[in-house]
């Protein structure tokens, strides 16, 4: 029995050690980096001008809803932002993962939360700009106010190495000759699928959509030779592309993307296709003006820190901060585009 107690005691000790060491790295690494970033808010133009009313915010823990499973890339983005932003606001920001249905479960939940500023939500293009228009959900883009964009990744048109096309022209010509070529995407109603439909509508080609369960499944199918054409985010593509396992015919950014520098854009090949999958931080609509301003300022400051820059870089994603107005404008634009595509599909 004594032995048992000793063991339990040692387990508890090790656990408390784990607890300490868990808080230590984040505190340590961010403590060193917070100094250079202090100057950012004052530089970012008149943020400290007359506040409408002083509010005491935040006074308790803030929740950041991540609509995807823990451990994934979106979760990493959330946790990085939550760490730093919580530190700047002087309150903990807890990341709560509510995965399911391509993010729309989390979105539905976030839209229904109290709009007191203590609940934030990280959205992606799929769950805000696509799902409300092809599925019965209880929210739209207007259910949210924007805080700012975190990152955006363009899409790549990926083909296997032995696919007889080297650029988009040849690709379109080939598909016109062989209608019904299969293309894979990470899922039904994903922004990748919408983008491919946009391409179909623009070029008049016809392909068959094969939805998979996530980017890595598409990668596996491509490498195993079960799939010839796919649409993936740059982040899913770049490792295999670097090793020459498949070809990227075009990327949907406006300029060449730094993650896949060798891939030409659609625009440079004469196709007016620009689209990115955005990830933005939102709050439920109707948060008090003074509160949302505090959040927006803190977010702007967060995104300018080296801590975020380093973390994003190691994940292979760009830091593409946009202010609330720019984010809103962009999200509405993408939403309109996707809505048009969905309408086009439904009428076809």
């Amino acid at each position: 029995m004594k032995k048992a107690f000793a063991l339990i005691l040692s387990v508890l000790m090790v656990l408390s050690l784990a607890a300490c060491s868990q808080s230590a790295p984040s505190g340590g690494s961010s403590g060193g980096q917070s100094t250079p970033s202090q100057s950012t808010p004052s530089q970012s133009g008149g943020t400290d001008a007359a506040e409408p009313a002083k509010v005491d915010f935040p006074t308790k823990t803030i929740t950041l809803i991540c609509p995807y499973a823990a451990g994934g890339q979106s979760d990493m983005i959330c946790r990085t932002v939550a760490d730093k932003m919580g530190e700047l606001l002087g309150q903990t920001i807890t990341v709560v993962n509510t995965p399911g249905a391509g993010g729309s479960v989390g979105a539905s939940q976030a839209a229904a939360e109290k709009n007191d500023g203590y609940t934030m939500f990280m959205c992606s293009a799929g769950n805000i700009s696509v799902v409300p228009y092809c599925s019965e959900v209880s929210y739209t883009i207007d259910s949210f106010d924007m805080i700012g964009q975190a990152t955006d990744t363009p899409f790549c048109l990926v083909v296997s190495n032995d696919f007889p096309a080297e650029n988009v022209d040849e690709f379109v010509a080939y598909v016109k000759e062989h209608p019904g070529v299969n293309f894979g995407t990470p899922g039904a109603n994903s922004s990748q699928e919408m983008f491919m439909h946009q391409m179909e509508q623009l070029t008049g080609i016809e392909m068959t959509h094969v939805p998979y369960g996530g980017g890595s499944e598409v990668n596996a199918a491509l490498l195993g030779g079960h799939l010839e054409v796919a649409c993936l985010c740059t982040t899913d593509v770049y490792a295999n592309l670097k090793d020459g396992l498949y070809k990227v015919l075009a990327v949907s950014s406006e300029d060449t993307d730094p993650i896949v520098p060798d891939a030409p854009t659609f625009i440079s090949q004469g196709y007016d296709l620009t689209c990115t999958c955005y990830y933005s931080i939102l709050v439920p609509a109707g948060v008090e003006e003074a509160v949302i301003k505090i959040l927006r300022d803190a977010y702007a400051e967060t995104m300018a820190t080296d801590y975020v820059a380093d973390a994003f870089k190691s994940m292979g994603i760009p830091v593409s901060y946009l202010s609330a107005e720019e984010t809103s404008e962009k999200m509405h634009k993408v939403t309109e585009e996707f809505k048009a595509i969905i309408d086009g599909l439904n009428n076809a």
Binding site: A101, V137, A188
Partner: peptide
């Protein structure tokens, strides 16, 4: 139950958002 993996249609959710993610 939940979102159909291939067509993205909702199955057996009866309009309740929580059921969308299906049975974990």
């Amino acid at each position: 139950i939940g979102v159909d993996p291939m067509d993205g249609v909702l199955r057996y959710t009866f309009g309740v958002p929580a059921i969308m993610k299906g049975i974990a």
